[in-house]
Design a protein around this nucleic acid. Structure first.
Lengths: 326, 326
DNA sequence: ATGAAAGCGCTAACAC
DNA sequence: GTGTTAGCGCTTTCAT
């Protein structure tokens, strides 16, 4: 492997100048920089990240901690983060906690502590206080995303406003018997219902995990009930909304004629199922998280990080919602 | 941050001995090892990966290159690889090529070349010859997975046998009018049909990308045709098979009464849709790839790598297939 | 089995 | 603007 000395020799300068020219730190004359760059190119020189990290204390690598990988939201966030990081010359090291137990502990006790990352993105994690203090003890830039991490500077989407928006869409169409399936997005639902002067019965809010199977099961229960069948369902995720759609179909109900359904996410399948939803752009969230960290890591090269800017969301009206039958 | 010297002082030995005790390289008496380990524990010492890498030439990090992340197959492979790597003390650095263009090039020209990884897993990639020679030039252990990488040692699943198995399942049930949707799994389909003495018309093999929308569209076309409607569909992925299932339902056809459908993957949704499929265990594939590499990286600690062992697959019969109506 | 010493390949002060 | 020098925190000979 070709090293910095060879480049220095070919360019006729010292190793230090090569380092300066290639990293952009310190001043180098335009001519020298050009010669160094062409020498580096000719030799296919790439700095050794380890040597560079050891000497500079900066790794150009960001750790991303996720609770799962094969859910649409998480893999989208990681894709977005990866894109932004690559674009800025950073690697992404992935820590997936789905293994649980010892592996999970070792991520915080061992892996994150061996100085391999400059910063950490923690996605939608429910962490123990030990784990949080572990993260903070790294004393590195840290950003949470979509999670309940009180002590961690986070990019947060306004969950209440999202749920309110989805609910208001149904209210605006004239629905009053609305079922909510989901959990942490309950508040916005209640707010919107109350503001519309509608009662919120306990049985009109069902807690569920966010899977299609669960959306199916709960929707079928509710839609099959002989007394208070809802005319609309607001599911806290598109996967549940799709499950609900299939449940309605299986009961012979037509969407949106017999029942309107709205989800949250704008999942990749939402378009296929013609689902009305509130998009929340997870790739963009991942990108933003990465850019926020990079701005902190390289204050000179970037403007202020845009932390605490509310994350964007948007109602996307497709064909799963309509006025209720009169 | 506490360094190796502090541990050495506390344990009353030299830094060299600490290194040997903690890494397992070189001989250390049992007593010394115990003292070193307890000192390291007390101080919460974790080796600096950069210093260690620079001195030893080994990074304890593996690069995983994927063409996408938010597809079930890829994220499952990455999850499996991550699990196996973490368990063995390795980090996983992710390179997602879905950005394309310049970013893609820089992964091969820059990122992979800065000595940050000990080995590379290349998942289902169609690489240019330049990219392949780039990978080989790294001169590091390398394993391909599920891709057409002729020059790269690969873990391969027997695509032909899988397709044959799925087709034979339909044949066994008595189907003769079988439609195949997919592309690179065509050969096994043809083999099974021919072996059963059945003709394979061109229109009974449709090429498609692997999405649900595509499966839906193609199945609807075929099932709506007034003349030669298939009694069974073999889709080359579960997502397409699910799309086909929905198409059948929308036409008022019942699965499996009017049409049998079999997929490949055992996707997380396959169970929900009661889909008969051939499972291919992508998490296990990722794990195997990682273990193969680790065995090469640490020949002393592990038995021979099990490369070229055929990857497992298995027919899972659910409720989307049955005998055709007489 | 253990310690001393020489790097690993770079970066950052410090000189000029 | 550029070269010289001294590390960064480990691992690994080479002694003993």
């Amino acid at each position: 492997m070709v090293g910095i000395d060879e480049v220095a020799r070919l360019a006729g300068v010292s190793a230090a100048t090569v380092s300066r020219a290639l990293s952009g730190n310190g001043s180098v004359s335009a001519g020298t920089r050009a010669r160094v760059e062409s020498a580096a190119n000719d030799l296919h020189y790439v700095v050794s990240s380890n040597a560079s990290s050891l000497a500079s204390g900066r790794t150009r690598n960001v750790g991303v901690v996720v609770p799962h990988l094969n859910r649409w939201f998480f893999s989208s966030v990681v894709e977005g983060a990866e894109r932004a990081l690559l674009r800025n010359g950073y690697d992404l090291t992935l820590y997936n906690l789905s293994g649980g137990g010892d592996e999970r502990r070792s991520v915080f006790d061992h892996f994150l502590r061996r100085r391999r990352v400059d910063a950490v993105i923690a996605v939608a994690l429910e962490l123990t206080t030990d784990e949080i203090s572990g993260l903070l003890a790294l004393d590195k830039p840290l950003v949470g995303l979509g999670g309940p991490l009180a002590e961690v500077p986070s990019l947060e989407i306004d969950e209440i406003a999202i749920a309110r928006l989805a609910t208001e869409h149904l209210l605006m169409l004239g629905h009053t018997a609305i079922l909510h399936i989901g959990s942490h997005r309950r508040t916005g639902f209640q707010q919107a219902m109350t503001a519309a002067g509608l009662p919120v019965a306990a049985e009109s809010m069902i807690c569920a995990d966010f899977t299609m199977a669960n959306g199916y099961a709960h929707a079928k229960q509710a839609l099959g009930h002989p007394h208070h069948r809802p005319t609309a369902i607001f599911a806290a995720s598109d996967e549940m909304a799709i499950g609900a759609t299939l449940a309605a179909r299986d009961l012979g109900l037509s969407v949106p004629k017999d029942v309107s359904i709205v989800g949250i996410d704008d999942h990749e399948l939402a378009d296929f199922f013609q689902l009305t939803t509130v998009a929340q752009f997870p790739e963009r969230q991942g990108e933003l998280a990465a850019e926020t960290l990079i701005a902190q890591l390289e204050p000179s090269r970037h403007e202020e990080p845009a932390l605490r800017v509310p994350l964007p969301f948007e109602l996307i009206v497709r064909s799963s919602t309509a006025r209720p039958l009169e």
